[in-house]
């Protein structure tokens, strides 16, 4: 974990209510895809936790949806401004158990951390298959980016305006044989993925947080191995430990 100032390089709308924030700063504390950062915003007492989409030395990419006053204020932050971030928070995805052809399944604002994961799985010579679910075409994000990485990518939209018509989970039947499951998205989607996929996997959850680093126990959830803090022992839980 680290606390530091990042400079905004670009903050740009990339789809309906979705923004990409490019930052420059010390990313050394970020160890795994699926971890998150917590951003201080002027005028708000609590920080805003956002999952990491991708990172490299000195450079951080976040993709976020404007869902409330905090993220709306963030979307107004202009290039050149400096933001105070806590980085390297949460456990993130473990790449080790992925097998040769892991299934990455994401819904809407849950897709960004799967991009960083897909990239690193490909670096390890794995062949991830991504299923990306959206409500409609104008909310599409990262579809081309997943393909550009070289990941096999299936798009599903609820209204059929792009890719397959239906939910991300409806596309699982088109996935063929997969070795493992990585999921991120709204909780009803995660539950459907849990029910409709075979074998083991890792699921990333979200919860309203106080601190983001384990101090307040605000975001706890029950698991088969006892209470876990989404911000510290999570946000990624093993499929086998999840209690719905």
């Amino acid at each position: 974990m680290n606390k530091g100032l990042f400079t905004v390089l670009e903050n740009k709308r990339i789809a309906e209510s979705v923004w990409r924030l490019e930052l420059e700063g010390d990313t050394a504390a970020i160890k795994r895809p699926g971890q998150f950062v917590n951003i201080e915003l002027e005028g708000f007492y609590l920080r805003r936790p956002l999952s990491v989409c991708d990172w490299e030395e000195g450079r951080l990419t976040l993709i976020y949806k404007t869902v409330g006053r905090g993220t709306e204020a963030l979307s107004g932050v202009e290039a050149g401004r400096r933001l105070d971030l806590l980085t390297g928070l949460g456990n993130g995805y473990e790449l080790e158990p992925s097998g040769a052809r892991p299934l990455l399944i994401g819904g809407g604002a849950g897709i960004p951390p799967l991009y960083g994961l897909a990239k690193r799985l490909l670096w390890q010579g794995k062949a991830p298959l991504a299923i990306l679910g959206f409500n409609r075409k104008r909310e599409l994000i990262l579809a081309e980016a997943f393909r550009a990485l070289g990941a096999e990518t299936i798009i599903a939209t609820a209204d059929g305006s792009a890719g397959l018509k239906g939910l991300a989970t409806d596309a699982v039947s088109c996935a063929g044989v997969y070795s493992y499951v990585y999921a991120c998205g709204p909780e009803p989607m995660l539950k459907a993925v849990y029910d409709k996929t075979e074998g083991s996997g890792q699921f990333s959850f979200e919860e309203r947080m106080g601190c983001g680093f384990g101090a307040c126990m605000g975001c706890s959830c029950k698991t088969k191995y006892g209470a876990k803090r989404i911000c510290r022992e999570g946000p990624v839980l093993e499929k086998e430990e999840i209690i719905w």
Binding site: Y45, L46, G210, C216, G218, C219, S220, C221
Partner: peptide, 23 residues
């Protein structure tokens, strides 16, 4: 104790509300 159900954090101007419930 697990404490109360989530959400158990809310924000306000100059502070926050918690309802952790002695986890």
């Amino acid at each position: 104790r697990f404490g109360n159900d989530t959400p158990r954090i809310a924000e306000c101007a100059c502070g926050l509300l918690n309802s952790v419930g002695l986890q």
